[in-house]
């Protein structure tokens, strides 16, 4: 009798759990549904007070967006892509090297340098945006790709995580390489780097997402429309005086499509990456 009761209770519990998850999942998908529906609607449908469950599948919205001379969408996409790719590769090299150096090369002031890295973690990067803007503008980098890319290459968090990762890297492999006469440089590139693929991929993913979605820094630096990133282009339309709604939603779809596809196809790998970096307490 008790066994039956418990299994009925368990079944009810499972039912409640699935209902809760199902409702939450539906709510989480609503914004995506709205985004794609609106992107394929006409202006009239978008402003009509009656609810349209499905759009009229107006695919021309996409060609209209890219042929609108007032909207530098193609240029913004190229900028975003260039920035995200260079920043990702740059962070991998710069932080990978620094993390390895901090973890493995004995040096008298090593700890002091490491404190400087961790202390800067506590200062939210956004708080320094005023002085950083002052610096970058005095270098003459406003509205240039340099100004958008270079300050983002020095990520204390990535360096910190790389250091943690290399501290746990099996030392025997490196010692063997050292005995074979490879110095720090050779050991790093020929032995350590080929064995840190998974971890580097995780850092790369996080950096790419952060770079693609960055807003405050590009807003401050990209003042000419030629230097706009996708996010700035979107934000400019969103806060403009008159908004072409259909174009706005198509632009938003174009802006999230690269990351969305990445998430759908590489989902498992990205999730493992986030877990693997050990951001949350290991």
């Amino acid at each position: 009798m008790a066994v039956v009761d418990r299994s009925r209770g368990a079944r009810l519990g499972a039912l409640a759990r699935y209902t809760a998850l199902g409702v939450a999942a539906a709510l989480f998908l609503v914004p995506f549904y709205l985004l794609f529906r609106n992107a394929l609607m006409t202006e009239a449908e978008l402003t009509s007070p009656t609810w349209h469950l499905l759009p009229s599948w107006r695919w021309e919205n996409f060609t209209l967006l890219f042929s609108d001379p007032a909207v530098p969408m193609a240029r913004s996409l190229l900028n975003s892509l260039a920035i995200a790719i260079t920043q990702t590769l740059g962070v991998l090299v710069v932080s990978g090297l620094a993390g390895y150096g901090l973890a493995r090369i004995p040096y008298r002031w090593s700890n002091l340098v490491f404190y400087a890295v961790t202390a800067s973690l506590l200062i939210p990067a956004a708080v320094t945006f005023v002085p950083s803007f002052v610096l970058v503008s005095s270098l003459g980098w406003v509205s240039t790709l340099r100004g958008l890319i270079i300050p983002g290459l020095f990520q204390a968090l990535a360096t910190f995580l790389f250091r943690q990762f290399y501290l746990g890297f099996p030392k025997e492999i490196e010692e063997a390489a050292f005995i074979d006469g490879l110095g720090y440089w050779g050991t790093f590139w020929r032995v350590v780097v080929p064995n840190s693929g998974g971890f580097a991929a995780a850092i790369a993913t996080i950096t790419f997402i952060g770079s693609w979605n960055a807003f405050l820094w590009p807003l401050v630096i990209a003042q000419d429309s030629e230097a706009w990133t996708v996010q700035i282009a979107l934000s400019t339309f969103l806060t403009a005086q008159s908004v072409d709604l259909a174009e706005l939603f198509v632009a938003a779809v174009v802006a999230i499509l690269p990351l969305l596809l990445m998430f759908l196809f590489l989902q498992r790998w990205i999730v493992e990456g986030v877990e693997r970096t050990g951001i949350a307490g290991d």
Binding site: W212, N213, F215, L248, F249, A255, I256
Partner: peptide, 15 residues
Amino acid sequence: ACSYVVAALIWKMSI
């Protein structure tokens, strides 16, 4: 995968 800008857009203009 979404940026704050895209979310703001959906929230402000649609929801």
